[in-house]
Design a protein around this nucleic acid. Structure first.
Lengths: 199, 199
DNA sequence: AGTGCGATATATCGATCCGATACAACGACG
DNA sequence: CGTCGTTGTATCGGATCGATATATCGCACT
């Protein structure tokens, strides 16, 4: 979810599209890129939605709402910032913990803003993600077991390495879940909350 | 490169689109998926290119070349097989070792057919891929070093885990390259080939 | 003083691929 | 005898990429 990434980063500070892209590359670089071909259309859509507004830094009076001209010819620079609706929308996204949140691409973005997410939503997403990744691991594992004898060295190497990566992610997620559980227990201990069942 | 994946798998054995998809999931599952939304249009394109042909298994006489009808209504099953041009095209792809071959998605597919690729092309691709991944690693590493103090626990965790994954890939590639080098030395020793510079 | 390169910056275009969905036939199972 | 899961083909809209065009700015080199 590109939309959430943009809202989240603009929530930290207003910036140019260009800057936005560099930040995305730095934060999500291990998982996802962000091309201009998605960025600028996304910014346009979001401006139309009213979630962000663009402002010309050379002429502060010239605010660019929904219907701004395409800036052809002499192009101005635009600093984007969240509107009230944008902040609202971001908060709304933070509370969503449905199955979409633990799909490959979404999860990375979702996780990057965990610090602003409620503990129970964090837990739901981490456990959902783990289930998801375990499923894939099991599928790959059995497929590998079946074909092990029949394939060449390189295919085997590729599948083994893929399986290792997935195994590592499961372990990483388990560590995070353990950590969350400890945090929760500490809160429960001092705050006497009932121990919620995490389904 | 979806095209190469299909050609490569059909080179092993003719099969249905559906089967093709399952094989792709099994072999590349750790890296890439394959949706029907890409598969069937791709098969159609490739049939138009003359690389593959489809044949109705219930009526072997009914071969489906380039301009076959969309099979609406009563849909027949289609077994796809490589044509002579298709085999040629696949061999051609196997010899290509340019920069495209070591980009994220391409590399996995490329690597899966390494057993049918020349040793020097294998080496070029492995080293190119390693350079590519090292670049990303260094970018991420310095970005992480710069922001380490300023970000929250989850962002840090995400970036660290991403960096670890990339580090692991570099090590994996290095092991493969070492192995290739050993193989080459053995051939050079017994076969007295001149030690090629791998630029 | 010129010049030329790399970074900053906005924007679009075509192509690729995904996700969801529809449709249909077949076999297993109760 | 129905109905559920698997096999199987196909399309649609939407998201995203990769390449490219354009323009400005600062800095180094000559």
């Amino acid at each position: 979810m590109l939309e959430m990434a943009i809202l989240g980063l603009l929530n930290e500070a207003p910036m140019h599209g260009y800057e936005l892209r560099k930040r995305v590359l730095a934060v999500f670089g291990g998982f996802r890129a962000l091309s201009y071909g998605s960025l600028y259309p996304a910014l346009k859509r979001m401006r139309e939605q009213g979630w962000i507004c663009g402002q010309d830094p050379d002429d502060a009076s010239r605010v660019l709402p929904a219907d701004a001209p395409p800036l052809t010819g002499k192009r101005g620079k635009v600093v984007y910032a969240l509107t009230a609706e944008g902040k609202e929308r971001f908060q709304e996204l933070l509370t969503e913990g449905g199955p979409e949140a633990w799909e490959d691409e979404r999860f990375g973005v979702r996780f990057a803003f965990f610090a602003q997410t409620d503990a129970d939503v964090r837990m739901r997403i981490l456990e959902g993600r783990r289930r998801r990744v375990e499923e894939r691991r099991d599928g790959l594992r059995s497929s590998l077991a079946r074909t092990r004898q029949r394939v060449d060295r390189y295919t085997l190497e590729l599948q083994s390495h893929g399986l290792d990566s997935i195994d590592r992610e499961v372990r990483w997620l388990s560590e995070l879940i353990d950590h969350e559980t400890v945090d929760r227990r500490q809160i429960d201990g001092t705050n006497s909350q009932p121990p919620k069942s995490t389904t």
